[in-house]
Amino acid sequence: MKETLKDAKEYWRWQEYHRVLPDKSWKSKDTITAGVDVGSVGSKAAIMVDGEMYAWAITRTGSNSPDSAKKVMAMVLDGTGLQQSDIKYTVGTGYGRVNVPMANKAITEIACHAKGANYIWGPKVRTILDVGGQDIKAIHCDETGRVTSFLMNDKCAAGTGRGMEVFADLLQIPIEDIGKVSLSIDEEPPPVSCTCVAFAKTEAIGLLRKGWTKEKVLAAYTRAMAIRMANLINRVGLEKEFVVTGGQSKNMGIVSRVENILGVKTLPSPNWRDGGLDPMVAGATGAALFANALYQKSQGT
């Protein structure tokens, strides 16, 4: 029994990490600001020095928003030599934004994601698909990162990161391999009819019993999610300068299917494993930028 428990793998578990950009540093006269994005599944924090990215961290959101905010803040400060008191202004965002104890202001994640995507990919970005842990947002913005139109589907968790975690667990595929596995099929199966997370297990088990491989089940579910996302994007207006943010930006199975359905390629993402900015931190990045702007404004500059 002990052996079984020890061997039990948490397939849904994704990588929590923190990073300090090696070629950046801070001096005491610099304006240091922070953004904390407490999402439904992941908590992200970013620190900026004079409006330039310096460090960030990603961790799992616990059951308590203030604690998650404190935890991710401690993670991001680790190795920077900075103290909480060195941070001039902090903006909270995400589901738990009103529960970020160190925040000077709360701003919706919509505004922060657009601002963050504008920073990560540059002013050419117009259409943003944010696939979070519990909702999907389609955002259209201008060259300054100001939101012009947006739509959020939080009616159900279908097609979200949480849904993918459920599938990773059910099919016993590590979450970070799920995109690759969903693409390892000879022919794309028809999408599943029901993307509901609560019923997905029932439907998936039914398909497995019918003799479908787990790759095929995963492909059918991923395809159904991608169709839903494409519908949302078409409603806010698709432009070819298109990016995906949030945890599912790392799921190639989702990204490539959305690209196929829409007939548009996403702008190339920086490689977060290789020192580049992380599209999952777009919300916290935008929040830290707003923090910098609001601090400058409060100083009358």
Partner: peptide, 10 residues
């Protein structure tokens, strides 16, 4: 900012 309140469902 144009906000869409609502949803697409079955």
């Amino acid at each position: 900012m144009i906000t869409h309140y609502g949803y697409i469902d079955g």
